[in-house]
């Protein structure tokens, strides 16, 4: 049953992605509305999937990569729905829905499924909440990063007087700037609370916080970089590419902390 729901969720995101591409090609709002509707349907199906899994096993699917991908696509979808409703920027869904579809699809690959992620015995409620919050933080950073890249491109073209025809699909600089602040702000909040909960978990498990562990150190550095973004922006009145550079750096560090550390460095962190 859960597998069927998972397939359905991916299918709904796939249909939404098709409408996203159509919207990107034609800019007809009909397609964007359809893409958003399918995103909502997919999100509903995914919520039911996760709830069913929780109901059946009292267990969040965080022990394997496919489950992690599912949670990540879930938090990314939630972030996108929130951003779409709050900021009302139509192109947002079209930019990210294919990524969500891809994340869901990746979960079906057998060699991905076989990668273990976290020991089931460690999965306390506090740990699950810590993971969910950092995932919501990461999802917001992802959207903030994507919007920041769009800002970077749009700004570069405007500065160099080279306006490409496809860039007419992107929202105005002001909109992109506000959207970046919006998502980075929420990402910062989720990430910060997630780290507090993570610290509490660390004290429970290790009786200390190994601050020099690359994963933990990286996570706190991400927080510092995004804090600098807000300081530069609000206290020093800096905008444009300089502050967007911080968004990029922050995101790449978050990405490395999230995935890279596990593969390239050694860490005490369980995932």
């Amino acid at each position: 049953m859960i597998n069927i729901l998972y397939v359905l969720t991916t299918f709904f995101y796939g249909v939404g992605s098709w409408f996203s591409f159509r919207y990107y090609k034609t800019l007809e709002s009909f397609y964007e509305k359809k893409a958003f509707q399918w995103l909502l349907i997919g999100f509903l199906a995914q919520t039911i999937t996760l709830a069913s899994q929780w109901g059946a096993t009292r267990f969040a699917p965080l022990d394997r990569i496919d489950g992690i991908l599912m949670i990540l696509s879930f938090t990314l979808t939630g972030t996108l729905i929130f951003g779409r409703i709050k900021a009302s920027v139509p192109i947002l869904v079209s930019l990210f829905l294919p990524l969500i579809f891809l994340l869901s699809l990746l979960g079906f690959l057998e060699n991905i499924k076989s990668i273990p992620f976290m020991d089931a015995s460690l999965m306390t409620r506090g740990m699950i909440l810590h993971i969910l919050l950092t995932f919501f933080g990461f999802s917001n950073f992802t959207v903030g990063f994507g919007v920041g890249v769009a800002f970077w491109i749009q700004e570069g073209q405007l500065k160099q007087h080279q306006i490409k025809s496809w860039s007419y699909r992107l929202p105005a600089l002001e909109v992109l700037d506000n959207l970046t602040v919006f998502h980075v702000g929420f990402g910062f909040l989720f990430w910060a609370v997630g780290l507090v909960l993570g610290t509490m978990q660390a004290f429970q498990v290790w009786n200390r916080l190994p601050l020099l562990d690359p994963k933990i150190l990286g996570s706190f550095l991400v927080l510092v970089i995004y804090a600098l973004f807000f300081v530069f922006r609000w206290a020093l009145g800096m905008r444009g590419k300089k502050t967007m550079t911080l968004v990029m750096v922050g995101y790449f560090l978050a990405l490395f902390t999230f995935l890279g550390v596990r593969f390239f460095l050694t860490t005490q962190h369980v995932y």
Binding site: L27, A172, L173
Partner: peptide, 26 residues
């Protein structure tokens, strides 16, 4: 009009200026 670039971009100087303003300020 929706599927090609035939009408998407302005072709006189004043409307180009307005269009650029919209790309900055929405």
């Amino acid at each position: 009009r929706s599927q090609t670039e035939i009408a998407r971009m302005p072709t006189n100087i004043s409307s180009v200026a307005v269009d650029l303003a919209k790309k900055i300020f929405s």
